[in-house]
């Protein structure tokens, strides 16, 4: 149920929590940070800090999760001790959930994705996980569409290279 076109945070959590978590996990690379991202994102939904305009609800939610993620990246850059982990051991869950499919293929792709610099990872996740258009990604990141196109392509090239060689 959506009131006046604006969903409550509970409705968002119930109906779109899995989508938000997937985006958060692919951005952050681990469950701990993904939970923080989703919680903070729901808080922003609750506070109305991010204006919802009826349309693509998942696009709006992906944008919120991304903004929270980028804010966190900037915050941790100011505090290097908290830097996001580069250790591949950290970006993979220590033990998969009981019923989670743990295919080697998915793990390798996730590890490569997590190892991408965030300037490339964010457009890749928004495009290929959240299914956002270049225009939506550009709006979310506050950059021109051409920049999105360039970063997305470079991100995919890097990803390909890492899957080919970097796992060694």
């Amino acid at each position: 149920m959506v009131t006046d076109g604006v969903p409550t945070w509970e409705e968002v959590a119930r109906d779109h929590g899995r989508f938000m978590y997937s985006v958060a996990y692919r951005l952050a690379g681990n469950d701990e940070d993904a939970q923080d991202l989703v919680q903070e994102s729901l808080l922003r939904v609750h506070r109305g800090l991010e204006r919802y305009q009826p349309g693509s609800l998942e696009g709006w939610l992906a944008r919120i999760v991304t903004n929270v993620f980028l804010d966190e990246v900037r915050r941790r850059r100011r505090r290097p001790a908290d830097a996001l982990p580069d250790d591949p051991e950290r970006v993979l869950p220590a033990s998969p959930a009981a019923d989670e499919v743990s295919s080697g293929l998915s793990d390798e792709i996730q590890a490569a994705l997590a190892a991408l610099p965030e300037e490339f990872r964010v457009p890749v996740v928004l495009c290929d996980v959240a299914d956002q258009s270049y225009e939506q990604i550009a709006a979310a990141l506050g950059v021109p569409v051409g920049t999105v196109r360039s970063r997305l392509h470079r991100g995919r090239r890097l990803l390909r290279t890492m899957l080919t060689e970097g796992a060694a």
Partner: peptide, 16 residues
């Protein structure tokens, strides 16, 4: 040979 190296060689062959 590491798993990653095997993956790399395999992908390289495909690319070739």
């Amino acid at each position: 040979m590491s798993r990653g190296r095997r993956v790399g060689i395999a992908l390289g062959l495909v690319a070739l």
